[in-house]
Design a protein around this nucleic acid. Structure first.
Length: 431
RNA sequence: UCCGCGAUAGCUCAAUGGUGGAGCAUUCGGCUGUUAACCGAAGGGUUGCAGGUUCGAGUCCUGCUCGCGGAGCCA
């Protein structure tokens, strides 16, 4: 079957083509019927005039329900009245599978119903647009790193030790070795990779058994973690801003149609160009206090705090030098003032919050041993990680980007759950 | 885990403690340019589950289940 993608119809004006897809919507007016067909590349209005087709075909066009799969043969016409500017003057209709009572109609639905029907909801125009943008973000991420000498390093999903306490880890049995846990981050392994290959990045799913029930949390999400040898915190921030600029500007340039479908106001996205403002933790506290927040030094920022800070700027903001106590054991402390960690969070505008968390890593064996003791972590589990400081240790830094938070921000979504095909959340793991 | 809200037709919602309705969807009829088309008609209900109060409960009370919004949490 020779068929044409709907997105290519403009190349075939006044020519006869065949398209294959699903019935998205149907309207009729007596002796004329409009079938809107989707095929994953776009939407095409197919016009059936009584007289141009046999009565049998005309009746078929009347009978089929939404999401019936079908093949349409017709002549491409430039038609200003048609959505998209082109339509098919239909000459034939082949029904592949006739469907009735498709649950998701073109009218409004509640979120519970839509999530129960996520496998079908994905067919809707809005969800298709989001998935295409997600795909383009993924490709931009890979292009960015691949074009800058990074090597993709796949890190394990099953990990042996509950290094951060078991409360936020998904546990599974592992043969005679006891338990294994689904990874929360590939970072420690990425560090090993950076000392082997210089510049690496991971790209994979991560799992957090946090009992978080907010629009900014999933229990399973995708994370990208670059790690660079011979790099400090400033290098890390340089990389992060160049990275985000590349992703956002690429999507703006290449996914305009999808952003329009989502009715995304892109004026704020257009500002996402380096340099990003760099704000010291202490400056961030000043911003909060000026806005009436009673904030104690030493705490981490909550969701509302992040929004207030990011609202001061017209592009993502990088907050650095957090108190070491609230950050992870592997982050290097500032040699000039050890109460700070050489850490950075990148906060997205418009209330989307932290999309990147990163740091320079502790590269001194003895200091790292101290940190492990302070955090009451089992040293034996980290012997391999400590080896990275025993054999050719170098300053190195990296960060983690949450894919769904990034997609959610670029698409202007209300909730992370639409940014991934099949979201996993605390109270939902189906379909 | 805590706080708040909700569950009524396939979907989205209405119904003062007193005969359970509307729009969309579905089926049928009408219309030769519709844009979530429109017009007319029909079918469609164990009001989440269990108990209680009452002459009478979708509505009030108790418990449960499920979900939604938010908080905490988020190396």
């Amino acid at each position: 079957m020779q068929k044409v993608n709907i997105s290519d119809l403009y190349q075939f004006v006044e020519k006869e083509v065949t398209i294959a897809g699903w019935l998205y919507n149907k309207r009729s007016s007596g002796k004329i019927k409009f079938l809107v067909v989707r095929d994953g590349t776009g939407y095409a209005q197919c016009v059936y005039f009584k007289g141009n087709v046999s009565d049998e075909v005309f009746d078929k066009a009347d009978r089929i329900g939404q999401e019936s799969s079908l093949v349409v043969k017709g002549i491409v016409k430039a038609q200003p009245k048609a959505p998209g500017g082109y339509e098919l003057d239909a000459r034939d209709l082949t029904i592949i599978h006739e469907t009735h009572d498709y649950p998701i109609t073109p009218k409004e639905h509640g979120i519970e119903f839509l999530l129960d029907n996520r496998h079908l909801w994905l067919r809707s125009k809005r969800q298709v647009a989001i998935m295409k943008i997600r795909h383009r973000v993924v490709k931009a991420i890979r292009d960015f790193f691949d074009g800058r000498g990074f090597t993709l390093l796949d890190t394990p999903i099953l990990t042996p030790n509950a290094v951060e306490g078991t409360s936020t880890l998904f546990e599974t049995t592992y043969f005679d070795l006891g338990s294994a846990y689904l990874t929360q981050s590939g970072q420690l392994y990425a560090e090993a990779g950076a000392l082997a290959l210089g510049k690496v990045y991971t790209f994979g799913p991560t799992f957090r058994a946090e009992k978080s029930k907010t629009r900014r949390h999933l229990t399973e999400f995708w994370m990208i973690e670059p790690e660079v040898a011979f790099a400090d915190l400033n290098d890390d921030m340089d990389l992060a801003e160049e990275f985000l600029e590349y992703i956002v500007q690429t999507v703006l340039k290449e996914k305009e149609e999808e952003l329009n479908i989502l009715e995304r106001d892109t004026t704020k996205l257009k500002n996402v160009k380096k340099p990003f403002p760099r704000v010291h933790y202490d400056e961030a506290i000043e911003i909060l206090r000026k806005n009436g927040v009673d904030f104690q030094w030493g705490n981490d920022f909550g969701g509302g705090d992040e929004t207030i800070i990011s609202e001061q700027f017209d592009r993502p903001v990088m907050v650095h030098h957090y108190p070491a106590e609230v950050k992870a054991f592997y982050m290097k402390r500032d040699p000039e003032n050890p109460k700070y960690a050489l850490a950075v969070d990148v906060l997205a505008p418009e209330g989307y919050g932290e999309i990147i968390g990163g740091s320079q890593r502790e590269d001194d064996l003895n200091l790292l041993l101290e940190r492990i003791k302070e955090h009451n972590l089992p040293q034996s589990a980290f012997e391999w990680y400590l080896d990275l400081r025993r054999f050719g240790s170098v300053p190195h830094a990296g960060f983690g980007l949450g894919l769904e938070r990034t997609v959610s921000w670029i698409c202007g979504l209300e909730h992370l759950r639409e940014a991934i095909p099949f979201p996993r959340m605390i109270y939902r793991n189906t379909p």
